[in-house]
Each structure stands twice: as structure tokens, then as C-alpha cells.
Simulated scan of single mutants.
Amino acid sequence: MSFDLQLKGKRALVTGGTKGLGAALVQSLQDAGVEVMTSARAAPEKPLEGVTYVLADLATAAGVATLARAVNERWGGLDILINSVGGSTAPVGGFAVLDDAVWFDELNLNFMSAVRLDRALLPGMLEKGTGVILHVSSIQRVLPLPASTTAYAAAKGALSTYSKSLSKEVTPQGVRVLRVAPGWIETEASVAFAERMAHENGTDYEGGKKLIMDWIGGIPVGRPAKPQEVADLITFLVSPRAASVAGSEHVIDGGTVPTV
């Protein structure tokens, strides 16, 4: 039986596509025959042939406008929009160290970047009556770590609620809206963090990973997810093979979230 994802010739925008999950998504979509555009704050060291890279800071309205303009100038619209950019630079220390500037930084990157980009590009999808929008959320929205992820988790919670409402509005008009909520992914940034934890605690990299897994409450499968594993799930969900999947959130966390 063939499992062709029927994505050849589609046009997709992936935000934050030069590192980690974003880079894996760009590669996965390109391998499936998709024409891909992606954004980053800085040019990649090893750009993929055939991928269009747009330099833009999506934590700003101006950066989003730059990216949306690039999409419309090159393609006149798109078929798939994956809002995967995100992250946190909030200091450790609980609620008291989160001033307004930190809160707005977290919200602008993890929530408003998606809202602004959807607002710019969704009308073109609705005009055609077809398209897919996928927002990368996080299990942090249901499993926040008070010492370090309160603002990030709140932003991802807002993204999830917004996504559900948007899906209810536009799915009847032909545009599917989905969410994927990863747990800990073994990206370049998380590898560096595990190595730092290992150094500070006198252990090796595997010991550093175990410290982090214990910190977040454990991962039953025994390891963080690989970026490619999350990318594979997303690539399937945005494909015509998943045409009946809409409005839902798909958790890929190795069993970290302990509740139903």
C-alpha cells in the first residue's frame, strides 16, 4: 500500500525554520515535495537548496509584515502555514522576576507572532476555500514549571485557546486549524542546556538529560523526542491524508503529561 502524503506541489511557510524542530519541518516537507519558505532572525550556516529564507524577527509586527509580504510576492498565497517559532528567555525565579517587558517578550514571540501571521495570510486561504494552519503549542500549557516557564506556558495556553476558536470559525470555510503540543525535544538548545546541567552537577550528558527529565516529572519512554519525530507528525497532519483532522491538539511528549 502506498502512503503518499499527497503534498507534492503544495506551498508551505514554516516559521523559525533554521534550527531545531523548524529545521526538521523544512526538511520533512521538502522531502514530501513541498515548496518551502521559512523565516529566521539570522541566515542559516548551511541553507537547503530550493528553500526560500526570509530574515525577519517575528516577535515584532514589522517582522511579520516582512514575512507575509515575501509570501505574497513570491506565491500570491500559500497552502500550509506552520507557526513553529517560539521559545523563552524569561529569567528563573518565579512570578516576582517577570516584569512587563518579560511578559510582552514571551507573548509577542509565542502568541502574537502566530496571531499576526494568520491575520495576514489566512484571508488568502479563505478566498480559495482551502488551506491548513498548524500552531506548535507546548505541554507547558497544562504542565507549567513555576520557577521558569510561567510566562511561556501562559503564552502557549493563549495560543491553544485562540487556535480552537479560529478553527471553529474557519474550518467550515475550508481551512483546517490544528495544534501540536510537544514535550521536551532534543534540539540544539536543549542539548546545550543538558550539557550545562551535566557540567554543573558533575555528570555526563546522559546524566544531564536525566536531571532535566526528573525536573519536568519524568518521560515514560525514557528520552526526549527527536525533532524529526515531531516533524513527521506535523507533516502528516498538514497533508491531505489527514483531511478529517481539524480543531484538535496532538500531544507528542513521550507520556510526560500524567493526566487524561
Rank of each mutant, 00 (worst) to 15 (best):
A24G: 00
M112G: 01
G93W: 00
T66P: 03
G208Q: 08
G94Q: 06
A12K: 06
F95T: 14
G218I: 03
A114S: 14
E127F: 04
G77I: 05
L134F: 10
R179Q: 13
S165D: 13
P182M: 02
G33L: 04
T235A: 14
P258N: 09
P146Y: 07
I133Y: 09
E188A: 12
A101V: 12
V54G: 00
L55P: 08
G174M: 07
A68E: 01
L58H: 03
L5Q: 00
V191H: 08
N83R: 05
E127M: 11
D79R: 09
A243H: 12
P240T: 11
E249A: 12
P220K: 10
A189E: 13
V177Y: 08
E249D: 14
L98P: 01
A32Y: 03
L211D: 03
V34Y: 03
G131T: 01
G9Y: 08
G254I: 07
R119Y: 09
T66N: 12
A43W: 02
R241I: 11
A90H: 03
G129H: 06
A43Q: 08
G86M: 07
E206Y: 12
M37D: 05
T130S: 15
A242C: 14
S148F: 02
V251L: 14
A151L: 08
A246W: 12
A65W: 00
K156E: 01
G22L: 02
L126R: 02
R241F: 14
K209E: 08
L109P: 03
P240H: 15
E249W: 04
G124W: 01
A40L: 02
N83A: 11
S248R: 08
S28L: 00
V251I: 15
V257E: 13
N108L: 03
L55A: 08
E127H: 13
E73Y: 07
I212V: 15
G255W: 09
E106R: 04
D4F: 11
A181R: 03
A147M: 05
G247N: 13
L67W: 07
N110F: 03
S163A: 11
E106N: 10
M1S: 15
V132S: 09
G207H: 05
A59R: 06
A59S: 15
L117T: 05
G9L: 02
T38D: 01
Y205K: 13
G255H: 11
G124K: 01
A189C: 04
E127N: 07
K128F: 02
S88I: 06
G202C: 11
A96L: 10
A231N: 01
A24E: 09
K168E: 11
A40C: 06
E45M: 05
T149D: 06
I185L: 06
Q30H: 05
E169Q: 12
L21E: 05
R69V: 07
S244M: 15
I139G: 00
R41W: 10
S113Y: 01
L109A: 13
S88F: 01
A120Q: 09
G222P: 10
H250L: 14
P227I: 02
E188W: 06
A194H: 03
A242R: 12
D105H: 12
H135F: 11
E188I: 12
V245D: 10
A114W: 00
S165C: 12
V54K: 04
A61M: 07
P240V: 14
W215S: 14
R141D: 04
Q173I: 02
G207Q: 08
P146I: 08
G208Y: 04
V54M: 11
P227S: 09
A231F: 02
V251Q: 10
